[in-house]
Simulated scan of single mutants.
Amino acid sequence: MTARLDHWLPGAQWRTHHDRSVAAPEPEAARALKEVTFSEMTVMRPLMTLRTLPSRLLGHSDRKLIAGDADAIQGMKRMGFIVLDDVPGGELIMGFVGQPWKPSLPKAVVPGLSPEEFMAFDRPGYVKGVFGLWAEPGGAGARLHTETRVYATDPRAARRFKPYWLVIEPFSSLMRRDLLGAVGRRAERTAREGRHSR
């Protein structure tokens, strides 16, 4: 999976990686990656409510961003991410281009980019990010992974993004762990139900 991340963003000044074991077979863990919803997460919605507060104070409606029925792909797309890779079996890579330090979330991302446009984007003053989510065999079950990488297109963007990252990274990591926890619970529940139905 890291090879696909390298393909989309070979260089990155900032990156985080989180993983966790799941007591479920890899196929069920991989399916849960895409089917998990925001309503199954503990901290995602409160943190997104906090992140979108400046937008709402400025009169922009971000209500759809925190809708509980959104699955992993829908939810990320609502936040401005684009699908770069959606591999059968669970691997998912999404990307964004923008200026996330801006208070209004809708104005902080460049909308409507194709994967090819994402790859070619090099306009000064922006950052490019990728978010990978995948499952692989691990012990008696599976291991879930998420990795985030961010690249600044020029030194000015790097200077703008660095303090933002220092503030937001602990909360971003909390959201990633929350996501993996929700995926794990869904996969384990599905595995139990499958055993009981036999």
Rank of each mutant, 00 (worst) to 15 (best):
W165G: 02
F171H: 00
R123Q: 14
A120E: 12
E116A: 15
K162T: 15
G132I: 00
I168W: 06
S172C: 00
F131N: 00
K128H: 09
P111G: 03
K128L: 11
W134T: 04
G112Q: 07
Y151K: 02
R143C: 11
P137K: 04
K107N: 09
P170M: 03
V110N: 05
K162F: 13
R156V: 15
M119R: 14
V109Q: 08
P124N: 08
F161L: 08
A108L: 03
T146A: 13
T153C: 11
G112S: 00
L113Y: 07
L113G: 09
E169R: 11
A135E: 04
F131E: 06
Y164G: 06
A108M: 09
T146G: 11
R156F: 15
P170S: 03
M119W: 07
A140E: 10
L113E: 08
T146N: 13
Y151R: 06
T148P: 01
R143Q: 15
W134M: 05
A135M: 02
L105D: 09
V109S: 10
V150E: 04
M119L: 14
R143P: 09
R159T: 10
P170W: 02
V127Q: 07
H145S: 00
R123V: 13
P155Q: 12
F121W: 15
S114L: 09
P155C: 10
V109H: 13
E136S: 12
F131M: 10
P106C: 11
A152R: 00
R123S: 08
L133Y: 13
R123T: 15
F171W: 02
R159C: 10
A108Y: 09
A108P: 03
G129Q: 13
Y126P: 01
W134Y: 12
G112M: 01
P103T: 02
A157W: 11
G141W: 05
R159A: 15
V150D: 05
P163L: 05
A158I: 04
E169T: 08
P163W: 03
E117W: 01
L166V: 05
A158H: 12
E136R: 12
R159L: 14
V167F: 14
L166Y: 00
P170Q: 02
Y126A: 02
S114N: 01
K128C: 12
Y164Q: 09
F121P: 11
W165L: 02
